[in-house]
Amino acid sequence: MGKNIRKVIKTDQNPAADLVDIQEDIKVVADLNPAVNWGRYQQGSNSHDAPDPYEPQNSATPNPTHDPGLNTGYVLHHNGPQYFGYLADNPQVLNNNLHGARDFFDAVENRTLPADGGVFYLRGGYDNNDGLVPVNPTPAIQQAFLGNGDHPAYSDQQISEAFAARAINDIANSPYWSESAIIITYDETDGFYDDVSPQRRSTFADGSPLAAGPRIPTILISPYAKAGKISHHYSEHGSVIKFINELYGLVPLASLPDEKQGRELGAKTLGQPNLGPSDNPDNEVGDLTEAFDFAILRGEKDPIPPARATFPQNVVARLPHLATPYYSQSGYTNGACEAVGILPTDFLSPAAYKAGEPIDPYPVDVNPRPTQSPGTPTSGTGTP
């Protein structure tokens, strides 16, 4: 590559030959990094999606469409591509790759995703397109927590679960299922306790952790997955990138010249070999391939049928999901876990779960609900 770059600089000597060199360079880069279809589908990115009920239309922070500020259901800082100028400033990307959440479901249901596949990212926002409202009847709660992004302060957990379930159903019930890998993951722990200490892979200059923290869930759904299995391989968000690299034969970000030099300097001068992109093929970070059943991939076993991945539509569209009315007199449980064959660790037995008798009950003066629902439930002063 270096020889050809030097030739390109000297264009006054033989322009025709230099043009051939440029074309050869482009071909080499294309061969190293084949084109991969991709799309980002984010709630509120365009006017196809429901707006934030707190803000009127045309009043929000600009979004990446031709009509900035049109849809208030859009969470600006969750749009990853905007942080890369070569994407954010590219009109073709804005037109062809950044879409609203409803556009994803339309594309799957109408079979308009690229025929040769790709990588498609779906994320929620300040509202949902299915008209769902939280189960809590408090008006302030029902207005403030319509989001489907499963994020504190504006989302409802069950609405977010319905959002994911509908996406899974749509894919499983489409021709795309036979070639799909659905990866569901989260960007933070929301403070939930983790009994396993975080692994410190790298640190800031002051010694504080730079990478790895409390564990977060990741679910892989595919006709080629190891059904019902849990992977204990160390993985992180970079593992999704590693998987994409492996699937499409892409050059890892960590192997690019500047990144590779930076990692070498980090190891030499700071004793930290894990600085830089975590998709380094030589590190211990997993690439998610351990979650696949290679016997299925080799044709020795039948793929998992789509029925194993789908949810009944009447469950997806109704809140609360799978709840049994008056299941527990104490109100601790509603039967949803029993319906899917799960016994939460807070309960010693199914009988204790049904009785609503956890081993670690809430203190009597705690109100775990949002500020829009004031009062202490156990004292009789809670807002229903």
Score class of each variant (00 low, 15 high):
D106K: 13
N71E: 05
N110R: 11
F105R: 10
R111S: 15
L94N: 05
D103W: 01
Q92V: 14
Y41T: 09
N97A: 13
A140K: 10
H78V: 03
P134S: 05
D116L: 00
P91V: 02
L122N: 13
N97S: 13
I26K: 03
A140T: 11
D21H: 06
G149D: 11
G100C: 08
I26V: 00
V119E: 00
N136H: 03
Y74M: 02
D89H: 10
V36F: 00
Q43D: 02
D127H: 04
D106L: 12
P62T: 05
P34V: 05
D52R: 08
V108L: 03
Q57W: 08
D31H: 04
G125Y: 01
E55L: 14
H99K: 15
L146R: 15
D106R: 12
V133H: 03
G80A: 13
V75G: 05
V108Y: 01
T112W: 01
Q92G: 11
D116Y: 03
V29E: 07
N71L: 04
D67G: 06
Q42R: 07
G125K: 02
D49C: 10
V133Y: 05
F105G: 11
G117F: 02
H77Q: 12
R40G: 09
F145E: 06
Y74Q: 01
Y86N: 10
R111P: 10
G73D: 02
V36S: 00
S45H: 10
V119L: 00
A107F: 08
S45Q: 12
A115F: 02
T65I: 07
G117I: 04
L87T: 10
P114Q: 03
P53F: 00
A144K: 15
D150W: 06
D49S: 09
H66V: 15
R102K: 14
H77F: 08
G131I: 09
A50I: 14
R111G: 12
V20W: 02
Q23N: 08
D116F: 03
Y154D: 14
H99M: 13
Y54F: 14
